[in-house]
């Protein structure tokens, strides 16, 4: 082979296409394949006395990412089991250390100090874990070979979180719409695809009225109103999320979520849990088919700007049972 054939591609694209169409997401995975992955992961996890758990996580994510298509290209997941295992060990040292200090203090009859240390530690760790998990997942996700990233810092996020938690406590939870909007503004506002930043311009006050209404209707609707509130909040949140000039648009509805959840629940109950992979696939299909990115966006000209990240936050979030960016 002639070495001159290895010349790189011209760095400027030949055709620049700025379309203002709608870019769709779609999920192609099947419950059967996911079930196969789950079962083989389970067997290997048992055989390795749990160590394979981290590789299993990577396997599952590689599948889910690889089956998700945006505008004709699949996502890629680039995490490795080894880095997740190391991240887990770090998280265990941090979280275990906190638990041990608390245990030690309470054995030394320092009950109040133990409580303060434990809850103070949790409040400091929670945003670290949440942000770390977002950072890890984004930095290990690619589309068209370009990585996502997160550029937020811990200290401002901790400040935001502590302020939010205090106001939540003082207002007995009424602050929630403002709290979730402020966390989202930070987490999305510091997320990037290559060199292009995402933005979130939603405001808590615009959801506040509906939130109060949902609170009032909780008892008469036996809590079901919260499914409709979740749908509303999701539509609102996506509708205020943009990347460059393009904006997301979600068509999730209360009835849609209700039907999805009900069928999934029945499937899982009657199959004694065996149908969980099929339920997962149904949920991802629904989520993807109800989300589009609209507006002018040059999908071809986004430049790479990758960033290093460690998986400790990801595993800490796992340990603390944190849902990354719910709703």
């Amino acid at each position: 082979m002639n070495p001159s054939l290895r010349s790189p591609v011209p760095s400027t694209p030949l055709s620049v296409s700025i379309s203002s169409g709608a870019y769709r997401l779609s999920f192609h995975g099947s419950g059967g394949e996911l079930f196969g992955i789950f079962i083989l992961n389970l067997l290997k996890t048992i055989l390795t006395l749990g160590v394979y758990y981290f590789w299993a996580k990577v396997k599952t994510r590689q599948y889910l990412w690889g089956q998700t298509d945006f505008a004709g290209d699949r996502f890629g997941f680039h995490g490795t089991g080894k880095e997740l295992l190391l991240g887990y060990l770090k998280a265990v040292v941090v979280f275990g250390g906190l638990v041990l200090i608390q245990l030690f203090l309470s054995l030394a009859e320092q009950k109040i100090l133990a409580l303060v240390v434990f809850w103070g530690g949790l409040i400091a760790l929670w945003p670290l874990a949440l942000m770390g998990a977002v950072r890890y997942r984004l930095s290990r996700t690619s589309w068209r070979g370009i990585r996502f990233s997160f550029r937020g810092e811990y200290q401002p996020f901790l400040g935001l979180f502590v302020r939010g938690v205090l106001l939540m406590a003082l207002t007995l939870g009424l602050y929630y719409p403002f709290y979730q909007a402020s966390l989202r503004r930070f987490l999305i506002g510091h997320a990037a695809f290559g060199s292009t930043l995402f933005t979130f311009d939603g405001q808590g006050k615009e959801l506040f009225g509906k939130f109060i209404l949902a609170l009032l209707l909780t008892i008469p609707t036996l809590g079901l109103i919260w499914i409709w509130y979740t749908a509303l909040q999701r539509r609102y949140n996506w509708g205020h999320t943009s990347v460059a000039e393009a904006r997301f648009h979600s068509t999730v509805t209360g009835w849609g979520l209700f039907g999805l959840g009900l069928v999934n629940l029945l499937m899982i109950i009657f199959s004694l849990g065996l149908a969980i992979p099929w339920a997962t696939v149904r949920t991802l299909r629904y989520d993807c088919s109800n989300l589009v990115l609209q507006g002018p966006l040059d999908l071809d000209s986004i430049a790479q700007q990758a960033q290093a990240a460690t998986p400790a936050g990801e595993e800490l979030a796992d340990l603390l049972g944190i849902d990354v960016l719910p709703g």
Partner: peptide
């Protein structure tokens, strides 16, 4: 190319020692 998100339509040739990727502008990798 790993540097930008440009999607290049290519033709891939299987040769005994590797892949030859032919771009629309005539260049080859």
């Amino acid at each position: 190319d790993g540097r930008t998100s440009t999607r290049h339509a290519v033709t891939v040739f299987l040769t005994p020692s590797g892949l030859e990727i032919s771009l629309s502008d005539g260049s080859r990798i």
